[in-house]
Write a protein that binds this DNA or RNA. Structure first.
Lengths: 204, 204
DNA sequence: TCATTAAACTGCACAGTGTAGTTTACTTCC
DNA sequence: GGAAGTAAACTACACTGTGCAGTTTAATGA
């Protein structure tokens, strides 16, 4: 790794820390260069503006978070166990400080740059993966899901509304046991509605 | 209404608009005074600083939104209908542009001022009201809820995760039909788990 | 009805601070 | 010897908050 590459890495690391601590407006290029132990000119040699630096940092972090994701599907396991693992695909993000910090940073820029927030939201959701799994499980007769899109949103929603958003605004990272309880209770509810032997819904 | 009161009102209205459009950092006191058609000195005569103005605006808006809230409980109606109305207590907020704009503004300040975001989150949630209704319905034998706190979070979560957060970040206000569908599907799921005749949950 | 008075508002200049981004003159290292 | 880095000063703003001379407003009281 060349000196230039090393400096760039230092800049990125410093910028991530500053942006995540203070947000876009609260961060100055002077502080980034100081923290990176690099001259301000060097920062501008690598990134043409503060805005560009911010966006490249976001891309970098999203790629990093996404690369670690995998959605399990193993139809030899009991359905509840499979759903627990599916829930944990999301849960893994929620207990990952990198992800939570990124989410917090991005969400704080909604007003200044709504396009960014919408873009990140779209790139980071697992909904389509969840949907595919639910559809397949349903085709194999292991679940009774009529609308996989709605069911996926409900399942994810049960988890995120309790494990993601409250912590996002409270700036904390939940522990494994907390998330496990939430996922288990979400699976319970999901199975009550979409399990093979769930009672048919009645109309009022 | 005195001149002074009128000017103050103009300042508040201008400040609400500016803060909601640009966020805290993006708004300047010069622009507020210009928009309010008032001298900058007058703004500072009414509000000692930008921070104070921002907080007073938030209080003002929260009070305004909260005053319109009411949680229905009518045990002569069918339980599904009652749950629909309960869901609509939250739904009413979601289709209210004032509420959504306030929420967006506050949530955007998470990084700069986490205490504010957490405080507003706490003051605007209906969870404890929901909890009370679910407990009572359960005592009256109309629902089978063992843990009202969890059940309330799940019910609210089903609604908010689909009707609130996606719109918060996309900066849009959903229409009545959209919210009605979400609430109806949430009630379906809720009843599958907590309805009197729901099948007993099985352990894996 | 009309002068008086106190409080509020205006408009402008101003200090002080912080920012993004540039330039310059010098150094280091491959 | 040339490409890249450094430190520091500099430009050109924008912003918060203050000070002050002069004007408007509304109510009072003769």
């Amino acid at each position: 790794m060349s000196v230039s590459d090393r400096k760039k890495k230092q800049i990125i690391e410093a910028a991530i820390a500053e942006f995540q601590e203070k947000g876009y407006a609260g961060t100055s290029m002077d502080r980034i260069s100081e923290r990176a132990q690099v001259s301000k000119r060097t920062v501008y040699n690598h990134f043409e503006s503060k805005e560009v630096l911010f966006h490249e940092i976001n891309q970098f972090l999203v790629d990093q978070v996404n690369s670690a994701l995998e959605i399990p599907y193993d139809n030899t396991k009991p359905i509840r166990e499979m759903l627990m693992e599916l829930g944990w695909a999301e849960g893994a993000l929620l207990i990952n400080p990198c992800f939570m910090n990124l989410a917090r940073m991005v969400m704080s820029e909604t007003i200044r740059d709504p396009a960014l927030a919408a873009d990140m939201e779209a790139r980071m959701t697992l909904q389509s993966d969840f949907e595919a799994v639910l559809r397949r499980a349903s085709e194999e007769g292991r679940l009774s899901v009529d609308d996989p899109a709605v069911a996926a949103k409900q399942f994810l929603g049960l988890i995120k509304s309790r494990g993601f958003f409250p912590n996002l605004y409270a700036a904390r990272v939940p522990d494994r046991a907390e998330i496990d309880k939430i996922i288990a209770e979400s699976v319970d509810m999901f199975m009550a509605k979409y399990g093979k032997d769930a009672s048919r819904p009645r109309q009022t």
